[in-house]
Design a protein around this nucleic acid. Structure first.
Lengths: 211, 211
DNA sequence: CTATTAATGGCACTCAGTGTCATAATATGT
DNA sequence: ACATATTATGACACTGAGTGCCATTAATAG
């Protein structure tokens, strides 16, 4: 919920729930703008060729402050996934009790990803960077941890079987992420269709005997 | 094939196929021994607390040579997965044509992992290190790339459908790896049973409507 | 004995990431 | 208005991973 906390840049303003009037020195730093600028640098010069010093210089802040907002270089690329996680939360909570079919579930997952589709250009750029870099690619499960753990928690309560929920969540995670990367690479054009097709294939894995 | 190339340490002697008489300076360095020693250090002092300098010192070689054998620190932990990949290769090649059921396939995967079970103590130690460290954990798909790509290639030729093969390979990869980690963590005792059960659960995902 | 080939070590370098501390800028209380 | 608590920022130094370069060493082939 709290979809209003999602700003137009696709960033996330943090915990806006009980916002006390601001104390202390206010920040003049805009993380979303810095991330976007960094992405642009990465695209033109290559991820490895751009150092954190360079990003800080470009953003007009000190190197130390940059690391305060982005504890790891990869966070610059992963920044902006919070809206997707927030949306999934809302969608799962809205699912009626007792009517969980596989297709309903996968539709919910696909629906939550529409937050990505919104800023299609930037998202594609980020995903392409991720796909092109083994280090970044490997961070998918970690950096989107909220998304995946929320999905698994939901499935655990709905299925009653923690083991089965875990397998299902893991499989969905891997297949969805792979579909996103293929979409970003340009192999597929329709965002939702790509993810939906991948999940449909996953659901039919048990019927392998036909070969 | 070439299972004889697997030495008693669980290491892999590289390409022994057309071994010319050795030229140049011979190496006095034993990568498997170094990896094992490093694992021991990691276990007692923690992965982060042990620098590559320390490992090199312990092994009695220069830091530079250490990096020549293990280009990344994580490779010390992942070392020894080659036998598993070799075994999978042999098992897949031996599968009779035209009789590929899901259970036959998963049995083959489980069977290939017996190379891990052999040195149970060391394998558990390594997997525990991996499980306890997000960086290492994320490298699973990359470091075992040969294993997974071989599986996917096999499925592609057998199924005829590249897309379906990819989804299947991805799902198996994730679920198997997760099962291995749970086994290493001590949550499960029977190695094969753990992996088999996870794969069986995966095969039955499509039937979700019963809840 | 010489040339060739390959392994190793020493050194310096880049860059990611962290700890510490001084300083600046804001709001609150008097 | 003024002192104080609170927070953001920057400056600096440090650790450790990983790389490039080159001299050196140890083997074999002729």
């Amino acid at each position: 919920m709290t979809l209003s906390a999602i700003n137009s840049q696709g960033g996330y303003d943090g915990d806006m729930s009980d916002s006390q009037p601001a104390r202390g020195r206010p920040s003049h730093i805009d993380p979303a703008a810095i991330a976007d600028a960094a992405i642009a640098l990465f695209q033109t010069h290559g991820y490895d060729a751009i150092s954190m010093d360079r990003v800080a210089e470009e953003a007009g802040i000190s190197r130390r402050s940059l690391f305060r907002y982005f504890p790891a270089k990869g966070d610059l690329v992963w920044h902006g996934s919070a809206p997707v996680e927030a949306r999934l939360h809302g969608i799962l909570a809205a699912l009626p009790v007792g009517t969980l079919t596989y297709s309903v579930l996968t539709d919910a997952v696909v629906d939550s990803l529409h937050a990505l589709d919104h800023r299609e250009g930037v998202t594609r750029a980020r995903l392409r960077l991720i796909a092109g870099h083994a280090d970044l690619l490997a961070q998918g499960p970690t950096k989107l941890a909220t998304f995946w753990t929320e999905l698994e928690a939901f499935l655990t309560t709905r299925l009653g079987d923690a083991h089965r929920a875990r397998v299902l969540a893991l499989a969905i995670r891997t297949v969805v992420f792979d579909a996103l990367l293929r979409w970003a690479a340009g192999e597929e054009h329709d965002f939702s269709a790509t993810v939906s097709a991948a999940l449909a294939t996953l659901g039919a894995l048990g019927t392998l005997s036909e070969c």
